[in-house]
Design a protein around this nucleic acid. Structure first.
Length: 484
RNA sequence: GGUGACGUAGCCAAGUGGCUAGGCAACGGUCUGCAAAACCGUCUACACCGGUUCGAUUCCGGUCGUCACCUCCA
């Protein structure tokens, strides 16, 4: 099926036409590993994952997906410094070697990041590569050199900057977003580094070493520039090395449109002579209870925070998939709760497909499949696809279906789950939960009271059991105890 | 200040120049001693003001409001 996606380069939905016939090359801007990922970060990676899954399952392509790990920047350096309060015992002993500290610090959060991905249903085996910025310093220096030699970079006070004005004479700067060069917010010129630059819109390719920071030597024009790469150059260098240019799709959050991706385009074109990609796709932000997430507001949730509040990570995944990636998602606890119920309903439908209980009814599953897939193919429209799924489960009772229809539906849900990855496609298992003897005793007492029609006592016992954290469901044959 | 997005029922969230998206909640019912669960049913909205049109929630203009980006925040 033809996949369509919104391309920020042209601000419209376009047919995906990959460079290679059978394979789609995707690069996703990955995390800066200086802290635990929060649900906003997670949304971005979930979007990239959704994209690659839909391209595979619906588009029938192979996918080569690269996500970088930014392990060197102001924050990772700051927090890995000797005596940093952000240093955790689990990271090991700090040493005198600054690079070693940086590596220990960032590898800790990198590990946590991949654990979080797994929890949220993203399989890191789907990733072709997860390059760490510090392992591609040579490639970055080569690229900077090339940009410099072509006259689009200049050194200033030990750093090397990209010359946007010079570049604008050759090509558009502002391909992703219209930039009004006369109206950059004026107070942003008051910036501690501002005097280094020829003009405000120039960005740094190589940052000179400041104080006690880890650094790499970099010889340019016979002169050494001890320092470290700027943020934008990391992605440009790693993309070229791992995917080759141009590749197909570049993903990231909307905040990266400018300047990060704009600068990537300029750098790659200036240094390599090629623009990085044909499609830029961006996910919108996530708010919490209607407000932008921020540490100062205290509405900053990590996956672990949510799990600690008793939220099943599969419900987080499902909730995020229930809205379109390009719209602002308002994360609320009430919302998670309500959308979760929808997931359970679909799950129950799937379970009943496995029941060996058949009717006469037959439906054309292929038509349903086409419908759902076409929604996903249309700019990853998961809300519409889910509406189709709900319409399906509302239109029938599973046990009135004949055997082959049930089997086809199981196959369909298996396929859908390759994308959604939030259901168990199997027979319902009796979950073995240890019910304490005390509870069983109370429940038996209640059944006895019920049999004697002593409902007051029965209700009292039910309340008592509820207080202890268990729920009683009566049935014709007896009762069922569920742990709350 | 500049650029862009958005405002849809109690809540979340699609979409469209005429043909009730969907979910959650709520309410009524079936079933239950009563509940719970499940099932059936009910709930017809598009910020405001103009304009275009036979017809506008959808197109155009304006107003109000919310949000994002404008040098390293996904």
């Amino acid at each position: 099926m033809q996949i369509k996606i919104h391309n920020t380069l042209h601000n419209k939905i376009e047919d995906l036409k990959p460079i290679n016939e059978n394979e789609v090359l995707i690069y996703s801007c990955g995390p800066t590993v200086y802290n635990y990922a929060h649900i906003g970060n997670i949304r971005a990676f979930l979007f990239a994952d959704l994209l690659q899954k839909v391209i595979k399952v619906v588009g029938n392509y192979k996918v080569k997906w690269v996500m970088n790990i930014t392990n060197i920047d102001d924050k990772t350096i700051r927090d890995s410094q000797i005596g940093s309060s952000a240093w955790l015992e689990e990271m090991g002993e700090q040493t005198d070697d600054l690079k070693e500290n940086l590596s220990k610090f960032t590898k800790y959060y990198e590990k946590k990041f991949f654990e979080d991905l797994k929890i949220i249903g993203i399989d890191s085996a789907d990733l072709f590569a997860t390059p760490r910025a510090t392992e591609y310093i040579d490639e970055m220096q080569k690229l900077i050199k090339s940009i410099y030699e072509k006259g689009f970079a200049y050194p200033s006070d030990g750093s090397i900057y990209f010359n946007v004005n010079e570049w604008r004479k050759h090509d558009t700067y502002g391909k992703l977003k219209k930039i009004d060069f006369d109206n950059f917010k004026s107070n942003l010129r008051i910036d501690s580094d501002q005097y280094d630059r020829e003009q405000v819109s120039d960005f740094v390719l190589w940052k000179s070493k400041k104080g006690n920071e880890p650094y790499w030597d970099f010889t340019l024009d016979g002169k050494n520039f001890p320092g470290r790469p700027g943020w934008h150059i990391e992605c440009s260098a790693m993309e070229e090395k791992l995917l080759g240019l141009p590749f197909d799709i570049h993903t990231g959050g909307v905040d990266l449109i400018f300047p990060h991706h704009e600068d990537e385009i300029a750098q790659s074109k200036a240094g390599f002579g090629v623009e990085p990609t044909y499609y830029f796709c961006h996910n919108e932000f996530l708010e919490v209870e209607g407000e932008k997430m921020s540490k100062s507001k205290g509405n900053f949730y990590t996956i672990q925070d949510l799990i600690n509040r008793g939220i099943d990570p599969m419900n987080i995944r499902f909730a995020l998939l229930s809205a379109h990636y390009a719209s602002v998602f308002n994360f609320t606890f009430e919302g998670i709760n309500s959308i979760s119920k929808g997931r359970y309903r679909i799950q129950d439908f799937i379970y009943s497909l496995f029941e060996e209980n058949y009717g006469e009814k037959s439906i054309d599953v292929e038509i349903i499949r086409e419908k759902i897939f076409s929604k996903l193919a249309d700019d990853l429209h998961t809300p519409k696809a889910l509406a189709e799924i709900f319409s399906l489960i509302n239109s029938m009772s599973p046990n009135e279906l004949n055997k082959s229809t049930k089997e086809s539906l199981i196959e369909l849900f298996k396929e859908l789950n390759l994308i959604f990855n939030v259901w168990n496609i199997e027979q319902k298992k009796q979950v073995e939960v240890e019910i304490p003897d005390e509870i069983i005793k109370l429940a038996d007492e209640r059944i006895a009271a019920k049999a004697e029609k002593d409902y007051t006592k029965a209700d009292e016992l039910r309340n008592k059991i509820a207080e202890l954290g268990y729920l009683i469901k009566d049935s014709k044959t007896g009762y069922e105890i569920i742990k709350k």
